[in-house]
Each structure stands twice: as structure tokens, then as C-alpha cells.
Design a protein around this nucleic acid. Sequence first.
DNA 1: ATAACATTTAGACATTCATCTAAATATTAT
DNA 2: ATAATATTTAGATGAATGTCTAAATGTTAT
Lengths: 97, 97
Amino acid sequence: MKWGGALGIQQTLKAISDPSRREILDLLKSGGKTAGEIGQHFQATGATVSHHLSVLKNAGLIMDEKKGKFIYYELNMTVFQEILSWITAFTGGDQDE
Amino acid sequence: MKWGGALGIQQTLKAISDPSRREILDLLKSGGKTAGEIGQHFQATGATVSHHLSVLKNAGLIMDEKKGKFIYYELNMTVFQEILSWITAFTGGDQDE
DNA sequence: ATAACATTTAGACATTCATCTAAATATTAT
DNA sequence: ATAATATTTAGATGAATGTCTAAATGTTAT
């Protein structure tokens, strides 16, 4: 299945509308991290963090890579372009035409 | 009270995470419209549309202007800049520097 | 095999949210 | 004043969502 289409923008915007998830994205700006490392920055349970990671992953905002005992998460920049396009359509940018 | 600050991004992203509200924003791209005109494009009740307009207004995404019996709504582009900044922080764009 | 560690999944719970109907407010016309 | 029109507000309801605890899965070390 290929995300990033018309259905994708909804999932993406929903994903970034939660503060915890945005904080996760901010964390990943400085490089890939394991679920555990990410969880250390929050008071929330590991299960909660895992859920947020799952939402971000389904939205295509992050990717995961299994490395032995750990799972590394990292940003997937390409999806941000979609939001960018949606927004610039308002700010006078005729990017889609 | 002045919106558009650190608190604002949350409200803004929440506001645009709803499909109906994004449709309203799209409608307003072609110019200001009354609540009634906006409502005609939806199956939803006038009350529902009014609620969405209220959310968009609180987020600073639209502005209203009373003209006699009608209330005109129009886009407030400036707030989109805030989202733009947030996003470009990920896409490697150094737009703010 | 057993224990320890890393992460996810399942199920429950409380809150938020989109939507509706009905009533309220405000403006214009008769 | 009364009626008609435009829009919002109030209150209710069902669905979606963030969070938790407990259990399950998968991996490495003893």
C-alpha cells in the first residue's frame, strides 16, 4: 500500500495534531532513536509511547528499522512535503498549478 | 488576547485536522462567504457548520465581519505562516534564518 | 531452557469531539 | 409589533482518542 495520496493528508494532519507526537518528531530531528530512548523523554508509559509511534508510522511520518533487540525510529521527511503543499496553496503559493 | 503564539500551533493543527474544516478553508480560497453560503456546500446542519467556523476562528485561521443580516467569513493567511514554519523545520528548509 | 530486556498488543476507562435537534439572539421587512 | 431570515448557543449522544495496566512477542545472555 502506498501512502501519501489524497487519503494521506488526513492521517498526517491527525498525527501531528497531538502534542506528544510532535514532541517525538522534534526528538527525531537530531537523529534516529530507539523506542526506549524516545520513551525516556516522556512521563507516559512505554505502551503509550508505542501507540504514538504506531500512529506516526501509519501516517508515514517516521520509519522503523529493527536492529537486534531494539527498534530504531527515524523521520521520513518526504511526507512533510505533502503538508507543505497543502499549506502553500493558501499562502498564495501556486505550487500545484 | 493575541493568538499565533506558542499555544496557537496546537489549536491551529487541531483545527485543520478535520476534513470538513479543511473543506471550509478551501471554499474560502475563492473569497469571503457568509455562513449560509458556506453551509450550502455541506450536508451538515447549520449548527454544525457554525461550530466548525467557531473552531477555525478561535484558531485564527479565519476572520468574521458582520454585515447587516449576514456574517462574512474570510481566510486569515497570516496564521498559515506559523504552520509553514513548523513544517519547514523538518524538511531541512532554513526558512526562518 | 531460563532469565532479563525491549517493545508491542489487548482490553478498559475517561475525555474530547463532531454532530444533531431545539431554542435563543439579532437583523431586516411588512 | 410581527414575521421572516441568518446565525449562534445549549444540551444530548455516539464515536474517536489518549492513556493506563497486564499480558504477549521477540531478542540476547547465562
